[in-house]
Amino acid sequence: MSEQILKVEHFSVSFDTYAGEVQAVRDVSFALNRGEILSIVGESGSGKSVMTQSLVKLLPAPPARIKSGKVIFDGQDISGYRFKQLRQIKGQKIAYIFQDPMTSLNPTVKIGKQVTEGLLAHASVSRQEARRKAVELLRSAGIPNPDKRMEQYPHELSGGMRQRVMIAIAIAMQPQLLVADEPTTALDVTIQSQILGTIKDLNRSLGMAVILITHDMGVVAGMAQRVMVMYGGRVVESGAVRDIFYHSAHPYTRSLLAAVPRLDADSTAPLEHIVGSPPDMLAPPAGCPFAPRCRYAMEVCRSHMPGRTELGDGHDTYCWLCDSRAGETAQAFLRGERVVHSGTE
């Protein structure tokens, strides 16, 4: 059995629209170990959701189109799988939870039926057995009085409880991989900390690998072992959580971290913000997608996409500044100095 549960190579996804081809995901490669929590961070439109949902072709095609790439899950190349074959994987081996628990649950069906549905479809169990198991699942997802909840409809539950129901459904078949797409963005911080705690407990007890998509760097710090930063449909940096937070080597990652106010920090200095807005994916920039907003951008950044630079221990960055051929600006950046390059800001 290989260490890696998931390996994605040169994965690209586009949407064919009237306006043209929206290149949402461009040449993304990464791997995920068994039992590991990987956090994918990036702004809206950076391609993180499209990428993870396309792994098992959850997006309707057309307009979504997987242009290229390989997806190796549990040692098998599933990128060529058809709908029927994928169904054996979806829900059983790879489970998803989404941001909005209200739209993911059927409002006209009782909680009990929605939890048992997957069990009856995938596992050969009797109705009673499935019911007993469902109560157990709701309990392990942290829902008090699960027996009573089985008979209720989604609207009778709070947002946090609904997300717990989603978790119960997701873990029903003991998946090897859980993709949590902004699972707590719609919830209060207090509920968020409970839901994240539940996901972490399940990750430990079931040995389930987790891809956690979020834009909250605080959540990343508390949950992830590894982090992948996406921008403009590309991976710009990836590495162990400490490397990303303390030794980030990409200007975008640094700006992202600086844009989050710290509770212990001085609040008189203005927050660092990133000037401008994310690129238009109908006509993505030829070079590094972050170059137009980057204060360290050089000529080469605008015309050529940087390749991968390995910094050791699985810490990779895609930035010309880390290239051995880069000049003085790059040296200043790597030393952590603030440089305002002519032509930006």
């Binding site: 994240l196 760097m217 959540v219 710090a221 508390g222 400490r242 971290l257 710290r262 509770l263």
Partner: peptide, 16 residues
Amino acid sequence: EFLLSAIPVPDPDLES
């Protein structure tokens, strides 16, 4: 106190 303790801190060493 409860509300503050729920805020995740963007610092892995502190957070752990």
